[in-house]
Design a protein around this nucleic acid. Structure first.
Length: 311
RNA sequence: CGCGGGGUAGAGCAGUUGGCAGCUCGCCAGGCCCAUAACCUGGAGGUCGUCGGUUCGAAUCCGACCCCCGCAA
């Protein structure tokens, strides 16, 4: 095994990227030069300066970390680092064309969908909202256009009936960790040839905002239940009760439809809310400022919610 | 000093013009019943987040601190 190690610069921000990054660090075929990630941002209560999860991981592993505000001004730094390749998992910024051309092997990206379906930022929630049976990951080369680069490898992931965005994120992170090292080597050795995407079949999903997570009780219970899973754990599908935000954390669909949309009642003794079609049995929910509780516990403490309307 | 809600029995909540600490569920015991997660009776279980102050007396008023949570970013 005389071939030199592949020099890699990692780029990514959320914890979803950590397992795959760790897999590369653990693999003797690679030499990791460091991590490129977003600057620490004010976040959480009190707006304390918070580092991206990958940065915390990188420092623990003794890696150098770069956090440029803007990539445009970071061009010369990348030239000096001299990576053979940059591996990107949810970095959080579009990479300027000029930077894409610097590493000899280019920039390789892990994308959380089966491209060309679901290009864009909301890839994790989209398949759950749409009730897809399958999604997956695509390992692809970055090009100037968003998520449009040629695909090196894809792996399908089955969506469980109770899949949430959170559970899907960990599946994607794990699958990425499983296949990324071999895929990168295969690509470098030209055994895996990037295949151009069929642009005519591309679809786009925008970033999910909290407003998108507000429940419209006139929709069907089936759609609402999917929304609940797609928004879990953040930002959480929500409605309001007495001007307070009420998050629905876990729910199941009932075909009983005698409750009007948004009206709270009991179905088989369980907390339920009417919808446009069928009803939603509420298994777990959280009132603003309170701990998340089961439907039963909520009824014990807030019994007067019965018969009221949520909006 | 970004905005806001909350810490009271195992759980979920009420209780702030200061006056022996409550409700629902659960739990334990007994009863009713062919039987039951139903019903009836009885019972156990709380340093009211912590520390200090005011007061004859503090869950309640004042001060400091710890922890949890919603928004926002």
């Amino acid at each position: 095994m005389a071939s030199p190690k592949v020099k890699i610069l990692l780029a990514g921000s959320p914890s979803l990227a950590v397992p795959a990054f760790q897999a590369i660090v653990n693999d003797q075929r690679f030499q990791v030069l460091g991590l490129l990630t977003q600057p620490d941002q004010p976040a959480g209560r009190g707006l304390k300066l918070t580092p991206p999860p990958t940065k915390v991981w990188a420092l623990k592993n003794g890696l150098t970390v770069w956090q440029p505000e803007k990539l445009k001004t970071w061009q010369s730094a990348l030239v000096n680092i001299k990576p053979d390749m940059v591996v990107v998992i949810a970095y959080g910024q579009l990479i300027p064309q000029a930077l894409l051309e610097i590493p000899p092997q280019g920039w390789v990206n892990v994308h959380g969908s089966l491209l060309p379906k679901y290009r864009g930022a909301g890839v994790l929630s989209a398949p759950i909202i749409n009730g897809d049976q399958q999604t997956g990951i695509s390992i692809m080369k970055l090009v100037k256009e968003l998520d449009a680069g040629p695909v090196i490898a894809q792996v399908k992931i089955n969506l469980a009936s109770d899949e949430t965005m959170g559970s899907l994120a960990s599946k994607i992170g794990q699958v990425a960790a499983d296949i990324l090292p071999d895929t990168l080597i295969g690509y470098i050795e030209r055994r895996l040839i990037p295949q151009k995407q069929n642009d005519s079949q591309a679809s786009y999903v925008g970033l999910v905002a909290t407003a998108d997570a507000k429940i419209d009780w006139h929709k069907s219970a089936l759609e609402i239940e999917r929304l609940v899973r797609a928004m879990q754990p953040v930002p959480g599908a929500w409605t309001t009760w007495r001007d307070q935000r009420l998050k629905i954390i876990e729910a199941t669909v009932s075909d009983q439809s005698w409750l009007n949309p948004g009206k709270v009642g009991l179905i088989d003794g369980q907390l339920a809310i009417g919808s446009g079609q069928g009803a939603l049995i509420i298994n777990r929910l959280q009132l603003a400022g309170r701990q998340a509780v089961s439907g039963n516990d909520f009824l014990i403490g807030q019994a007067d919610v019965l018969g009221e309307y949520l909006a």
